[in-house]
Each structure stands twice: as structure tokens, then as C-alpha cells.
Design a protein around this nucleic acid. Structure first.
Length: 260
DNA sequence: ATGGCAATGTTTCATTGA
């Protein structure tokens, strides 16, 4: 039985976040980190800084927007970017799949969708359908599999401050919640299992004054596990500390401890 | 709380994010 600590973190630019990451990651105990919104082409990804901390980065990014990466200090057996299902776009800068240390992890940055009437919202729903199809292909019964990342869905009313004003929001609308529920059916919400209390958030808008201290936020970053993996998860929590530092991401990392 | 802030590239503003 080995311990494995995994995490998901939307960094909102990996280059701007290196001071936070260099303070947080070495002390975090995280073995395998899933990043979203790296916002950088692969040639300019700060690989050396991660290597200096003892981690190997595997990235797929683009200029200005999106970008995902797997950062691991355990041997990685396989990594793939994009859905690889033949559909266009492939979303290689929003989808990463990794096998390492006896687990499989799908790391996604789900499109936010802008507004219900916007074409990006239809793209978001299609993205979630493709996640379901990907998992049907890649996650077999009994697999130690997790779907993690910035899902841009607050699954229930307690996952957002002031839900009554957000009925038509692309992250809260009943339709997207139903879609997310359908796509994630059979997977267990690890953060909710260990933190069922209200006010458990992973995103705190920069524009809301003292959002962190007032705990005005959203729970949109998730770690979801198959039944086989769920049995191996011994803890899951939000690490809000790096959100309180200088030049923070607007998201906080979500950490899960596994015994594999 | 119906604004606000942060990051990026096109850079002294426009666009995007959630």
C-alpha cells in the first residue's frame, strides 16, 4: 500500500504563478499535480523550474488561453492530450489523460460557456458528452480512475454563494447541472465526501472585495473517483492558503490522498 | 450584491475569464 497525493489547480497562467508554485508545491507533498489554464506554448513552459523542484512537467498549451499540464514526481507510464475521438476540435489544450502509480487520471479544463445563448455554451455541453464517451472507453470497471479539473460547473446550490441570483449562469443552470450529473454518474465527488459542509469553495473572484476572507466563492474544481478508487481515497480538501498569498490564482488547489 | 480584478497581447486599451 503506497500513499499518493494528487491535486488539481487552475493556475491562471503558469508563468505568472511560478512564485506561488515554487512556494506551494515543494511543501505541499503533492506527487501528481494537474494544472489548467497554463496560458503558454510548450516551448515557453517553465519546465526547468519544475524540474528543479523534482517534478517532471508534461504540457500541452497555446498562446494566451487554455493549456493543461501534468506535473509529477512519480514515474508517468502514459500521457495523452486531447479527446482523440476524431471530432474537431480535439481540445488538446483542455484535456490531458495520464497513467501513473497505478491510477488513471483525466484532467480537464471544461469550457466556461460565457452565456446560455452563446455558441460556447453548446460547445461546453458537447465537451461534457465527449468526456463521458472518453471515460466509457478508458475507465473500465474496477479501474482506479479519477476525473479531475476545472469543470466550470457548481453542481448544487450550496456550491455557490447567492445561488438564487445565478439560475441562468452557465456554471449553475439546471440544464448544465443535469448534464454534469449525467456525465459524472457512477463517480463519487471526493471533496463533498470529506467536506459536506456549506461554504466549501475552490474559486474566489478577484473582483469581489475580500472574497477569500468573506468566503464568497464557487465550488467548480472537482476530484471525482470511480468506486474502486473511492475506496482508496483517505482525504480530500481545498488548500486555500495559496489563494491568500501575493499574486494568487483566483482558484485554490484541491488535494486528494490515495492509498494505492 | 448588477461593479469589481488579473493576465494576455493587439499594449497605455480590448478581450477574456466565472
Amino acid at each position: 500500500m503506497k500513499k499518493l497525493r494528487i491535486a488539481t489547480f487552475n493556475v491562471n497562467s503558469v508563468r505568472s504563478r511560478m512564485p506561488v508554485l515554487e512556494r506551494w508545491l515543494p511543501a505541499s507533498g503533492v506527487d501528481l499535480l494537474c494544472l489548467q489554464e497554463t496560458k503558454v506554448v510548450d516551448a515557453e513552459f517553465p519546465a526547468a523550474a519544475f524540474e528543479a523542484m523534482g517534478y517532471t512537467p508534461l504540457c500541452c498549451g497555446e498562446k494566451s488561453y487554455n493549456g493543461v499540464a501534468i506535473v509529477a514526481r512519480v514515474p508517468v507510464d502514459e500521457v495523452r492530450f486531447g479527446f482523440g475521438d476524431g471530432e474537431d476540435p480535439d481540445f488538446s489544450t483542455r484535456v490531458a489523460f495520464v497513467r501513473a502509480a497505478g491510477v488513471s487520471i483525466l484532467n480537464t479544463y471544461v469550457p466556461q460557456g460565457k452565456e446560455i445563448a452563446h455558441p460556447d455554451y453548446a460547445l461546453k455541453k458537447r465537451f461534457l458528452d465527449r468526456v463521458r464517451a472518453f471515460m466509457s472507453r478508458e475507465a473500465k470497471d474496477g479501474d482506479h480512475f479519477a476525473w479531475v479539473g476545472d469543470m466550470n460547473v457548481a453542481p448544487t446550490d450550496i456550491d455557490v454563494t447567492h445561488p438564487e441570483g445565478k439560475r441562468d449562469h452557465v456554471c449553475c443552470h439546471s440544464e448544465i447541472r443535469e448534464k454534469f450529473e449525467q456525465v459524472s454518474r457512477g463517480l463519487a465527488d471526493m471533496l463533498r465526501r470529506f467536506h459536506p459542509e456549506e461554504g466549501t469553495f475552490t474559486f474566489f473572484d478577484y473582483r469581489v472585495k475580500n472574497a477569500l476572507d468573506r468566503n464568497i466563492g464557487w465550488r467548480i474544481d472537482h476530484i471525482l473517483a470511480t468506486p474502486a478508487l473511492e475506496k482508496r481515497v483517505v482525504d480530500c480538501f481545498v488548500d486555500k492558503e495559496p489563494r491568500s498569498w501575493e499574486k494568487p490564482s483566483d482558484h485554490a488547489p484541491v488535494i486528494a490522498d490515495l492509498e494505492i
